[in-house]
Design a protein around this nucleic acid. Structure first.
Lengths: 181, 181
DNA sequence: CCCCTGCGCGACATTTTGTCGCACCCGCGC
DNA sequence: GCGCGGGTGCGACAAAATGTCGCGCAGGGG
C-alpha cells in the first residue's frame, strides 16, 4: 500500500461522508483505486503518501473553502489533475479554481460519468457554446453575491455592507443553493 | 492613487455598438487609450498593429463565439490580459475562457470599476480591498432586466420567459424606478 | 369571426425581506 | 483576566415582494 500507485489513484476530498462514500464506491466499481479525505488536514496528510493522480475536490469543507487546497496539492503532486465539485457553484469560484490550476469545475449534482469526463484531456473541438438564454435574475444575483463575497475574502458582514443589503438577508441567500439557469 | 499609466491600450471587442461605445467612453474618461472592434475579423486585424495591453472581449459576437479569439490574441500579443465580458455567462464558458488564458470572466451587467478591477493582478489578498463600490443587487437586477428587455424589443412576456420569472412580477419591477447604487 | 399572444391590473396565498435581539467566538490592548 | 469591537449564526415577527389566477382588452392572422 505504501508503494507508488501504479495506476491512477483517486483522492476524493469531500465533506459529506455519504456523498463521498457513494462517489468512492462508484469509482471503485469502475476499477479505480480510491482514497477519501473529509477535511483539509486529512487531505494534506494523505496527499504526499498517496500521490493521487486525480483529485475530486469539494468546496465548502465543513465551512472552510477548498480553494486554498488546490495550490498545496499541486505543489505536493505536480502531475495530478484536480476537478472541483461543489454544490454552491459560481462563476467567481470557478474562475478562481481554474486560475489556481484546477483541471475542471463542476456543479453538483454531477454524475460519475461527468466527473470522469472532466478529467479527460480536452475532447477536441469541444468549445463550450454560450447558453441561448441569459442568466435568470436569481442566478445573476447569486453570481454577483459570490463575486463580491470573494472580493471581501468571505467576510459576510463586509459583503452585506458593500451590497447594501442586510446581513441577515445575505446569510439567508448564501444558505440556499444556487438556482440553475 | 497610483493609477495605471495611460500607456496600456484597451481593445474592446464588442458586438453591441452602443454598449461598446459607452464602455469606450467610460474608459477614455479615466485616461485610458481605447480601440474598438466589432467583429472577430476586425479584432484580429487590429490586434497586431495596436498590440493592446488589455482586451475586453465579449462572447456572442454577432452569433459567433468569442472564445476562439482568445488563443490567437494571446499568440499575437502574448503579454496582453484578456477579460471576458458576456451577457450569456455560464460556468462552462467561464472555465473554458480561463483555461484558454483569459485573465478574468465577468457576467454582463458589470460596471466599469469591476471591469478595471478584473485586470488587476490581485489574487492572494494583496492590497486592501479597493473602495470600488459594487453595484447593489437591486441595481444589478435592474440593469440586467433592461438589457434582456431590449434584446427582446420591449416584449415583456418574452423577457419574462427568458428570465424565467413571472410576467406579473416583471411588470411590477418595471413599474418601479431604477434604483440607484 | 375566432384564436393566439401580449398587456395591464385586481386579489390573495406564499415567500422573502427587513429588523431586533441574543449568544458565542476571537483578537487586542489594558 | 476583562472589556471592547467585529464577525457569525439564528429565532421571531411584521412588512414587503413575489407567485399565481383570473379577468378584460387590443392587434393580427387565418
Amino acid at each position: 500500500m505504501s508503494e507508488a500507485p501504479p495506476e491512477g489513484l483517486f483522492l476524493i476530498i469531500e465533506d459529506d461522508a455519504l456523498f463521498g462514500r457513494v462517489l468512492a464506491r462508484a469509482l471503485a466499481r469502475r476499477g479505480h483505486r480510491v482514497a477519501l479525505a473529509a477535511t483539509v488536514e486529512e487531505a494534506l496528510r494523505l496527499a504526499p503518501e498517496l500521490a493521487p493522480e486525480r483529485v475530486v475536490l469539494d468546496l465548502n469543507l465543513a465551512g472552510a473553502s477548498g480553494l486554498p487546497l488546490i495550490a498545496p496539492l499541486l505543489a505536493i503532486v505536480p502531475e495530478c489533475r484536480i476537478v472541483v465539485l461543489t454544490g454552491y457553484a459560481s462563476i467567481a469560484t470557478a474562475v478562481e479554481a481554474i486560475k489556481l490550476g484546477a483541471t475542471h469545475y463542476l456543479a453538483k449534482p454531477a454524475d460519475v460519468d461527468a466527473i470522469l469526463a472532466a478529467f479527460a484531456p480536452q475532447p477536441p473541438g469541444t468549445q463550450a457554446a454560450p447558453p441561448a438564454q441569459p442568466l435568470s435574475v436569481r442566478r445573476l444575483e447569486w453570481e454577483h453575491i459570490q463575486r463580491v463575497l470573494a472580493e471581501h475574502d468571505g467576510n459576510i458582514s463586509a459583503t452585506a455592507r458593500a451590497l447594501r443589503m442586510h446581513r441577515r438577508t445575505l446569510q439567508r441567500k448564501l444558505m440556499k443553493r444556487p438556482v440553475r439557469g
